[in-house]
Every structure is written in C-alpha cells, then in structure tokens.
C-alpha cells in the first residue's frame, strides 16, 4: 500500500492483514545495541521479561539475544540484568 492515493486507502484506515507492523523495522532507531556476555548470564530471563519491544528470545542453549530488526536500543535489559551480563555498545 506504500504510495497509495487517498482513494485507495481502505475506509477508516483499516489494516486487513494481521501483524503488518512486522514489516516496520524499528531497529533503525537504535544508537546502542545490547551485547550479552554469556559467561555472566545465569539464564534467568529477566531481559526477556522486561524488553518492551518483545524482541528478546532464548536460544537452544538457554542464552538470550535481541532481534536487531526491532531492538530500539533502550537499554532496559542491561539495566535490569542481575549479573551485569548485558553491555550497551554504541552502533557504529
């Protein structure tokens, strides 16, 4: 629908395809990225719980990572991490 004219827009700004915001990569806003030090990680999952974007997930070994397509670099995961396993590193 990008580039749609006002006539082509469905009345009421209705979006008929569920989950369409997935196509909008908010990760582009980020200036800091979270980097996990797995040697300090106790796999408690607090980073997963607190991530406001819901972009933190757990891998097969139980460690965590952020989906950088959506991570805005807010740093809440690093702030909340019990063991200081997450460092916010400047994008560059």
């Amino acid at each position: 629908m990008a580039g749609a004219t006002w006539r082509e827009i469905f009345p009421g700004n209705v979006v008929l395809t569920p989950g369409s915001t997935k196509g909008y990569h908010t990760g582009g806003w980020r200036s800091l990225r979270p980097v996990w030090d797995n040697s300090k990680c106790i796999k408690c999952g607090i980073c997963y719980v607190y991530c406001p974007e819901g972009c933190v997930s757990q891998d097969e070994d139980g460690y965590f990572m952020a989906d950088l397509d959506y991570c805005k670099g807010c740093g809440i995961c690093a702030q909340e991490c019990w063991t200081g396993a997450i460092e916010m590193v400047e994008e560059g």
């Binding site: 749609a4 700004n13 569920p18």
Partner: peptide
Amino acid sequence: KPLTMGAFAMPDF
C-alpha cells in the same frame, strides 16, 4: 478475521 483499526501511520500514509 483479525484486522487493525486506527493503526499507526507514518508520513507516507
């Protein structure tokens, strides 16, 4: 039949 009303829109929309 899930759909979204009153969604977010950027300057292109």
